[in-house]
C-alpha cells in the first residue's frame, strides 16, 4: 500500500518535471525568436539606406 502511494507520488513529480521542462523549452524558443527579430530590425535600422548603396 505504502509502496503504491510512493509510486504515485513519484509519477506526479515526474509529470511536474516534464511539464516544467516543456514550459522552459517553449520560453527559450520564444525568447530566441524575439532576439532574432530585434537584432534583425536593429541591423536594418543601423544600415539604413547604405544597404542599397553598392558600387557597381
Amino acid at each position: 500500500m505504502a509502496n503504491n502511494a510512493g509510486h504515485e507520488q513519484q509519477k506526479k513529480v515526474e509529470a511536474e518535471r516534464a511539464k516544467r521542462q516543456r514550459l522552459r523549452s517553449i520560453a527559450i524558443a520564444v525568447g530566441l525568436g524575439v532576439l532574432v527579430v530585434l537584432f534583425y530590425a536593429a541591423t536594418i535600422v543601423h544600415l539604413g539606406g547604405n544597404a542599397l548603396n553598392r558600387p557597381m
Binding site: 507520488q9 506526479k12 513529480v13 515526474e14 511536474e16 518535471r17 511539464k19 516544467r20 514550459l23
Partner: peptide, 16 residues
C-alpha cells in the same frame, strides 16, 4: 532531489 526541489508545488498547478 526532485522531491525536495518541487516541495510545496501544488498538485497539478505548475507555473504559468
Amino acid at each position: 532531489a526532485i522531491e525536495t526541489q518541487y516541495q510545496g508545488i501544488r498538485d497539478g498547478a505548475g507555473p504559468g
